[in-house]
């Protein structure tokens, strides 16, 4: 086990380095620079700005500097918001994003598991159909349409929640619900088909023949093997949700970090976008590892203890 963990950690470090290098190359090869505007300053002024941020150095030098600055956790100021450090900007967004992501993920997985079990148990009957329809709706409407409608319904027609904002606990409800819908639908669908499949396996038949009820068999015997596909998708889903959903952040005006991925790239804010990518990658590595451990527990045959 220790060896496995050590191995994985090493592999993760290599992945992180590879992602950093790749992202650095990709963003630096994108045309245009951070200080371009419709009203372009004279060339000399632009050169002065670029010199201030060492953008006039050879690319390999900048690569090493950037890499070192991240190793020492001192990435310097953002190019678009030079009043703030990249580290400050990212950490300012983390609480909101993590809170939103954790709640939505929790809610999504719980809802999804409940619905998946009900659907598998009532397979082919109307509760199953209902769950299927819900699951399809949850993943078939764009998030911004869902959010827009939710705001219209629950902030204006029935004024229960505020239409946006983040400081009020009640304001958290709508964005979390909207964000939880997709993972709930996904988990429900995967779990349902997993449960149905497992229900036909020999061990399930044995359990039923030994007097376990239908529900009991599903929950106590089939849930574990049926959760394998769910666990394998959970890592990436969790990373994506924890680093924020850009759409939800924008519509509900939540100060998370999701926007940095796109705005950092669009504004060519090199240190900020590299920071955001690194954060995502590290988080993903950790969560995937957790997901794999979970999978190993769920299905010892796929084993991690090699």
């Amino acid at each position: 086990m220790t060896r496995f963990l050590l191995h994985r950690t090493l592999a993760s470090l290599v992945t992180i380095w590879a992602v950093f290098t790749l992202s650095f190359l990709v963003i630096r090869s994108a045309p245009g620079g951070p200080f371009d505007a419709e009203r372009d300053p004279p060339a000399a002024v632009k050169a002065a700005i670029e010199a201030r941020y060492q953008l006039n150095q050879p690319l390999w030098q900048q690569y090493l500097d950037q890499g070192w600055s991240w190793i020492t956790l001192d990435p310097g100021p953002s190019l678009r918001q030079p009043d703030h450090d990249v580290a400050t900007i990212l950490s300012a967004g983390i609480p909101a994003s993590f809170l939103l992501g954790t709640l939505a993920l929790l809610l999504g997985v719980l809802m999804g598991m409940g619905l998946g079990i009900i659907a598998a148990w009532q397979q082919g009957r109307w509760p199953d159909r209902l769950v299927t329809i819900f699951a399809s709706m949850g993943i078939s409407l764009p998030l911004y349409v869902i959010a827009g409608l939710a705001i219209l319904l629950f902030a204006f027609h029935l004024p229960i929640f505020p239409p946006a904002g983040w400081t009020d606990p009640i304001a958290v409800v709508l964005p979390v619900l909207c964000l939880a819908l997709a993972p709930a639908a996904q988990v429900a669908r995967l779990l349902r088909s997993g449960l149905i499949e497992a229900g036909q396996e020999d061990f399930a038949r044995t359990a039923r023949s030994k007097g376990r009820g239908q529900v009991g068999t599903l929950i106590f015997h089939c849930l574990r093997p049926a959760s394998i596909p769910v666990a394998s998708t959970l890592g990436p889903t969790a990373a994506a949700m924890l680093t924020g959903s850009l759409v939800i952040e924008q519509i509900f005006a939540i100060p998370g970090i999701g926007m940095h991925f796109i705005q950092g790239a669009m504004n060519r804010d090199y240190p900020l976008v590299l920071g955001a990518v690194l954060l995502y990658t590290i988080l993903l590595q950790v969560l995937t590892l957790l997901g794999d451990l979970l999978m190993g527990w769920l299905d010892p045959r796929a084993g991690v203890n090699r």
């Binding site: 946006a164 924008q250 005006a253």
Partner: peptide, 18 residues
């Protein structure tokens, strides 16, 4: 000064009196 990127959100918050 609230930082609000989306035009729709601006209108919603204005409607709501925020």
């Amino acid at each position: 000064f609230l930082a609000i990127e989306s035009g729709n959100t601006l209108v919603n918050l204005f409607a709501n009196g925020s």
